[in-house]
Design a protein around this nucleic acid. Structure first.
Lengths: 154, 154
DNA sequence: AGTGCCGGTCTCAAAAAGAGACCAGCACTA
DNA sequence: TAGTGCTGGTCTCTTTTTGAGACCGGCACT
């Protein structure tokens, strides 16, 4: 496997040709998505394709853990106690398939498996981290909104 | 309803007390999450709580549309052709409940309903937008990884 | 009088997620 | 030597979430 230096494009670090860092021409963007998808549905939409991977119930949490350091299967299971073994396996598999996570088996006596972020994974986590930070900072506002909404419905 | 100036905290715009913009002490953070959740599960985890809202299949797409301008129900349905009416209703309801989206009914003859982003919604979209941009820029890398992985499995 | 648009809700089928039993192989202990 | 535990899974069953599509009332227009 060629090593291929990490050349993933980080948002905001350089000039981006057609895609602005501001919400410019978002309408056009949506229409372009619709156009490239053959007029039918949005199945080819890059956003959807990538966001889907992160949007799993556990993906972001696992990405967050692995961003800190590599973890073994059992460690992850203990770290996130309410994930089922089945979903842990499957989420890690999906993350691996999308190129975010590297899986390595060590021939120890009970063979251990280590999961770590690839360069692509780290790059993606950079963007995801923004959302995580926002979530931490504004969690209260969201909970407040939710409580207010529920009260109004009652 | 009080107007209450938008004072949501934008990531990276100011000094943040305990939360750094770098991936510092992520391990500590995870442990803190685990601690505050009573040692049991992560149900109180702010990240999980907020990410869940965005992680729906349609949430990010709708946020993206509404970030551009307000849309009416039927417009959204036409914009995202492969969403079922049921899921459109429900996703918008959830976004509204979390305080991201404002719903306004206009007493036109066939009464029309307009959905728009609240200040909180715009604030959140700012963070989400980073991820969207990343997705656009690195979509090819992900698709490549996926293709390579699938080929290796076969 | 018939047809269509508007923003939904309701029902039923399919897909995804959660819970938990089960597995093989080796090390350590009794 | 038999029993126990740890490793990282898979398999099956149940519950929850999603998707597809029929149905609704009310008004405008033809």
């Amino acid at each position: 496997m060629a090593v291929k230096k990490a050349v993933f494009r980080e948002v905001g670090t350089a000039r981006e040709p057609a895609v602005d860092s501001k919400i410019v021409n978002l309408r056009t963007k949506m229409e372009v998505y619709k156009a490239i998808s053959g007029g039918g549905n949005f199945s080819n939409c890059p956003v959807r394709d990538v966001i889907q991977g992160v949007s799993g119930k556990w993906s972001s949490l696992l990405m967050m853990a692995l961003a800190e350091r590599p973890y073994r299967f059992g460690e992850l299971r203990r770290l996130v106690p309410d994930i089922s073994q089945r979903m842990l396996t499957q989420t890690l598999y999906d993350l691996q398939r999308d190129g975010y996570v590297h899986r390595e088996v060590f021939p120890t006596k009970p063979p251990s498996v280590e999961y770590s972020l690839t360069d692509l994974g780290h790059s993606m986590f950079g963007a995801l981290h923004q959302l995580i930070l926002w979530a931490e900072l504004n969690h209260d506002a969201v909970r407040e909104a939710r409580a207010g909404f529920d009260a109004a419905q009652a």
